[in-house]
Design a protein around this nucleic acid. Sequence first.
DNA 1: GTTTCGGGTGCACATGTGTGCACCGTCGCG
DNA 2: CGCGACGGTGCACACATGTGCACCCGAAAC
Lengths: 225, 225
Amino acid sequence: MAAPSNRPETRVERKERTRRAILDAALTLCEDSSLVALSLRQVAKEVGIVPTAFYRHFESLQDLGLALVEESFVSLHAVLREVRRSDPTFEQNIDTSVETLLDHVERHHAHFLFITRERLAGPPAVRAAIKREIDLAERELATDLEWLVTSMGASPWSPDDWKALSNLFVRAMVSTVEAVLVAGGDTRAQQEVAERTRTQLRLVLVGALNWESRPAEPALRASEA
Amino acid sequence: MAAPSNRPETRVERKERTRRAILDAALTLCEDSSLVALSLRQVAKEVGIVPTAFYRHFESLQDLGLALVEESFVSLHAVLREVRRSDPTFEQNIDTSVETLLDHVERHHAHFLFITRERLAGPPAVRAAIKREIDLAERELATDLEWLVTSMGASPWSPDDWKALSNLFVRAMVSTVEAVLVAGGDTRAQQEVAERTRTQLRLVLVGALNWESRPAEPALRASEA
DNA sequence: GTTTCGGGTGCACATGTGTGCACCGTCGCG
DNA sequence: CGCGACGGTGCACACATGTGCACCCGAAAC
């Protein structure tokens, strides 16, 4: 609702505007179904254009899906970058990371719902694109974790263990986002999810700091006592 | 392909047979799409019956979905029960549990693919049914974990921490099943997933055994050294 | 043996769907 | 100024889809 400057829109502005409208319409419709159950005509009707006009912007629904994936992840990567350059004190890092993530999920609710669903149920190309992005985030996290954990005086780890750990964190994030989304608007439930996630991350952290790569006898400190 | 006894089928036998055929057909079609993108006529064609005959067995596709959920989870619950009554030595338990689970996933590939997809993308009622089953499994696991962990001399935990731990394990299971399924028939990748999962579970276990509920200063043993 | 019941058929209908084609009006370049 | 490119329209077609209805016929109940 910016000031409605009555200057007639330029051509590219107009095109970008309906492109956005299409993306938003698809996102809206995907809130209670999946891309694979969506029809070109539905989107067109939602946007308020004639079906064939859709092709002026995307080759197919799958193409639209890919655009939505990209769009969703630029915002997510921004968040991850923000989390990454925050205070490297691990404990605080967990709390603020969870908070930041959930805040972002709430603000970009539709995007995350889309990614969460299409990750497993979308058209093959869309699934592949999402997997690529997540794998990327996982690799980036792996180097960060190595940096953080070794700075806290743990034993040297094998590369596989680094992968396993970052994968564990990423899975936790994915699962948490899922949980928040199915909680819907129930803020009470969301709080519980957040608190539980914090506990879990701390628990994993405790495990990591007491970890030794490929122990012949596993490092079970508590049982030594 | 059992011995084709030429005795004419009884009425209920016949009915049960086409009901099974419908379930199997739907499961097959769901291998590369989702329930919400499935049409009554497709299933009917796959089964080899006329569309309207479908209604003699199910009220709707969603109804069919609920039946498939139930069917999928009876076999899964059997596995969980088997894992649960195995050797309570924790280390071995992890290895055999992962092995048993993945073995089962391979054998009931279509069922797990179905659950994995519909869990987030299916019709609302189907999603709800799957969530109910998973939550049930989580609660059952929580009591088992309490039994196992306390028998290994860890500090007393708060109820929330038990929930968090079992939730963490269940999420790990779900994620692992996902990973195995997207790996497709690539047994090399499956082996990697299995190994990584074992590592992760061991890591969580180490964390659990060094855990103290709600520590004012978190129990970071490594940093004390 | 006769009747009833119920799984399966065939047909019909209104509606939804992807997409080709000709067209139109206007913005923007020459 | 004029013309071409291009976003958007309207129409058409050949399907696919859910579902109602009358019907059929073989097993089961009597």
